[in-house]
């Protein structure tokens, strides 16, 4: 029973944190709490933290041995995504600046 309460707490914590982080990101925009650039940087960080919370609490990624294969797959995919998205944006934005 104790383990199951732990599982429920994992979901509840995940939901609470997700709500908090989402609320913070929307509040930044809604109440104009910061300059646009600062606000966007903060939103990106909040989003990243929220994705990690979702991965941990809802998708049960963990650093334990039993889930290592999943973790490796996710980390490798993240690396590929970073290369592809980052590379695309660098090349295309650079191209746009040169065409101006």
């Amino acid at each position: 029973m104790k383990a199951l309460r732990g599982d429920f707490l994992t979901y509840a914590t995940g939901y609470g944190l997700a709500m908090l982080l989402t609320g913070a990101a929307f509040a930044l925009v809604y109440y104009h709490l910061a300059a646009p650039e600062t606000a966007f940087a903060a939103i990106l960080i909040l989003g990243l933290v929220q994705i990690i919370v979702h991965m941990r609490c809802f998708l049960h990624m963990s650093l334990q041995r039993s889930a290592r294969a999943d973790l490796m797959l996710v980390l490798f995919s993240t690396l590929i995504i970073a290369f592809m998205v980052g590379g695309t944006l660098v090349i295309m934005i650079n191209l746009r600046q040169r065409m101006m």
């Binding site: 930044l28 925009v29 966007f40 989003g47 994705i51 979702h54 998708l59």
Partner: peptide, 20 residues
């Protein structure tokens, strides 16, 4: 749960950035 993760990226990068 995965679709939720994608949505987090969408509201951060698309909606909130656009609103700023």
């Amino acid at each position: 749960h995965f679709l939720d993760v994608v949505w987090v990226a969408i509201f951060s990068v698309v909606y909130l950035r656009g609103l700023l």
